[in-house]
Every structure is written in C-alpha cells, then in structure tokens.
C-alpha cells in the first residue's frame, strides 16, 4: 500500500515536471515570437556628422554601384550659383558644361530657380556614393549634401563591408525605425 502511494507520487511528480517544462517551453517560444514581432529590425546607417568623405563607400560596398548614395537636405541648402558640391574647384564657368561638373557620373542635376538661386537634385541611379560632392559642399558650403545608406538597395549584411573600413566609424547599426539620419538643421552643427 505504502509502495503504491510512493510510486504514484513519483509518477505525479514526473507528470507535473513534464507539464511544467512544456508550459515553460511554450511560454518561451511564444515570448520569443512576440519579441520578434514587437522588436525593430536593425539596419546600417551613416552618421553624416561623423563622415569624412573618404571615398570608401563607393569602393567597399558589396553592391555595385554602392548602396550608399548622396542625399540632399533641401531645407539646409543655400541654392548657391557657385556650388562647391556641383562645380569643380577650377571650373571655368558657373555652368552645366560637363568639364565643369565635379561628379564623376554626372549624377547631380542643376536647375535654375530664380536669380541667383539654383536647385541641385541627385539622380540616385547614377550616384555611386563617392562623396566627392559631399566633400565640396561640406568644405565650401554648409554640408547640405551628405551620404546615407539607401535601404531598398542595401543587403543589410551581417558585417557591413564599408563599416569595417570606415576610418571615422561613421557607420553604425540602428533600429530600422531610425534608419535615416539626415541633415537639415544646421543647429546640429553650427560650426560647419
């Protein structure tokens, strides 16, 4: 009689243990699934305030042409006639002539707005992310042209091959909800 009770207790104990383990496993899987649904994905992002326009975005991305493109903060732009991002330093005229354009792929379009203002538009398909225009705009303008990773092109590699060689550690993983850090308010960098 006593033996029967002991073996029953053991059986109950094992049954309860199995039930508990199953409940914990189910809870764990459910929690994991829920966290995957709630949690943001992570993507690569360039901090334009850290970027030093080294040219590696054009040469080291696994995509060809690079998934890094120049983007333009129109609200920051001075709409200058003499645009350091559009014209070569030794341009012989402030014109759209090919020999005066700084961009190696002619990916910037210059459009007259009204005297003396010009608007500059990036043709994304042509841009290779070389940052030549960004360098010109940052040095001689107010930095309205800057680089950013375009996420419908980026493969979101586990280890970004540009981040690996970026000399200023300007490329970081960020939540997908904050994918694009763009300029547009020069109070972020009033000394530029």
């Amino acid at each position: 009689m006593e033996n029967n009770s002991k073996s029953k207790n053991r059986r109950e104990f094992i049954q309860s243990g199995v039930r508990l383990s199953l409940a914990l496993a189910l809870g764990g899987v459910g929690g994991l699934a829920l966290s995957k649904v709630i949690e943001d994905d992570w993507v690569w992002q360039i901090d334009p305030f850290e970027c030093t326009q080294c040219g590696r975005c054009a040469t080291d991305c696994v995509m060809s042409p690079s998934a890094v493109k120049c983007v333009h903060a129109y609200d920051l732009c001075g709409y200058c006639d003499l645009c350091g991002g559009y014209l070569k330093p030794d341009a012989n005229a402030l014109s759209t002539a090919a020999e005066n354009q700084l961009c190696p792929t002619a990916a910037i379009e210059r459009k007259f707005i009204e005297e003396p203002y010009f608007e500059y538009h990036i043709i994304e398909d042509l841009c290779i992310g070389c940052a030549k225009c960004v360098k010109g705009c940052t040095s001689f303008g107010n930095g309205s042209l800057h680089l950013q990773i375009i996420h419908d092109i980026c493969l979101n590699c586990n280890e970004c091959s540009i981040a690996r060689v970026c000399p200023s550690d300007a490329i970081k993983r960020v939540p997908a909800s904050e994918a694009y850090k763009v300029k547009g308010d020069f109070t972020n960098n009033p000394e530029s």
Binding site: Q53, G55, R56, A58, T59, K132, K135, S139
Partner: peptide, 13 residues
C-alpha cells in the same frame, strides 16, 4: 584593408 592602411581615395576632392 583596414582604415589606417587605406588606399588613396580615387575620388579625392
């Protein structure tokens, strides 16, 4: 090709 051993920038301004 580490940052401190980088090749010259072919797109240098």
């Amino acid at each position: 090709d580490r940052p401190n051993r980088s090749k010259p920038n072919p797109f240098a301004y």
